[in-house]
Design a protein around this nucleic acid. Structure first.
Length: 259
DNA sequence: ATGACAATCAGAGATTGA
């Protein structure tokens, strides 16, 4: 089963880019971030006509996540547990059943800039809640993964220009510490389990010719539970998508699981 | 040190992103 994560930066502006990529890449499941749309305005029929079940968790203007799936989804839940006052739509879960049932968590982790400040505090608090959710899912011993735009540059080699990110919320020591804490639960970062070395990115800024200079960062990730890591058969970044007409500033990353 | 670019909402320009 092929499962992708893609920060599309606005569903209404990205219908052509997204449908073109879906036709070409043909994922069974696509976890989307930054749909920037309320649920009622999501163009669900476009994707239903392509054979996808559509589950959204949106809000007006910003944020918003969704799941497209060619296989039936079960137990869809919206929102990251741990703070009932959090109104930002950044998290959705669903179970997909193949040979094995796998719990899928789609997330859009807060950017956190400027740091320090309230937005950075929110990012770190959100990561603590994500940690707690991962602990709960690990205790349930069902295979799961957490995928999406983490807004975390894990290591210097994950940025073309590491010095530019030293004081940025995406790469501050506290951010990387929270990331490593997640990994230390026993989660496997899918991409780094298969590919080493610098030069692998999932985001290029629209500004200052970042794409043409390959000035990118790797911030979209799949974290796999131990039981899910055993099912991993491939992981790739669809870099070429960034070179198309009217692209998102992110590109898709996908895994295949033997389920 | 700053700005550059893009999407949204609204119907201009502010806000947000990374």
């Amino acid at each position: 089963m092929k499962i992708a994560s893609f920060n599309i930066n606005g569903i209404k502006a990205r219908i052509a880019a997204l449908t073109d990529w879906l036709k070409e890449s043909d994922p069974d499941v696509a976890l989307l971030q930054e749909i920037k749309s309320i649920d009622d305005a999501f163009p669900r029929s476009v994707f239903e006509d392509m054979g996808y079940q559509v589950e959204t968790h949106g809000q007006k203007g910003f944020n918003g996540v969704a799941i497209l799936s060619k296989h039936p989804l079960e137990d869809v839940t919206r929102g990251l547990p741990g703070d009932d006052s959090d109104e930002q739509a950044r998290y959705i879960e669903a179970t997909v059943v193949g040979k094995t049932a796998v719990r899928m968590c789609g997330l859009y982790l807060p950017n956190g800039n400027p740091a320090p400040g309230p937005k950075y505090d929110y990012k770190l608090a959100w990561m603590e809640r994500l940690q707690a959710r991962a602990e709960t899912l690990l205790a349930a011993e069902e295979p799961f993964f957490m995928a999406g735009d983490y807004n975390i540059i894990p290591q210097a080699e994950d940025a073309a220009t590491p010095s530019a990110w030293q004081k940025d919320a995406l790469h501050l020591p506290q951010s990387r510490t929270a990331w490593r804490k997640l990994l230390n639960l026993g989660l496997t970062e899918a991409f780094r389990s298969r590919t080493q070395g610098p030069g692998h990115y999932t985001f290029w800024d629209y500004q200052a010719g970042a794409w043409n200079r390959n000035d990118g960062i790797r911030i979209d990730h799949f974290l796999l539970s131990p039981g899910c890591a055993d099912l991993l058969t491939d992981v790739q970044i669809d870099k070429h998508v960034r070179d198309r007409e009217k692209p998102s500033d992110h590109v898709p990353i996908w895994i295949t699981l033997d389920i």
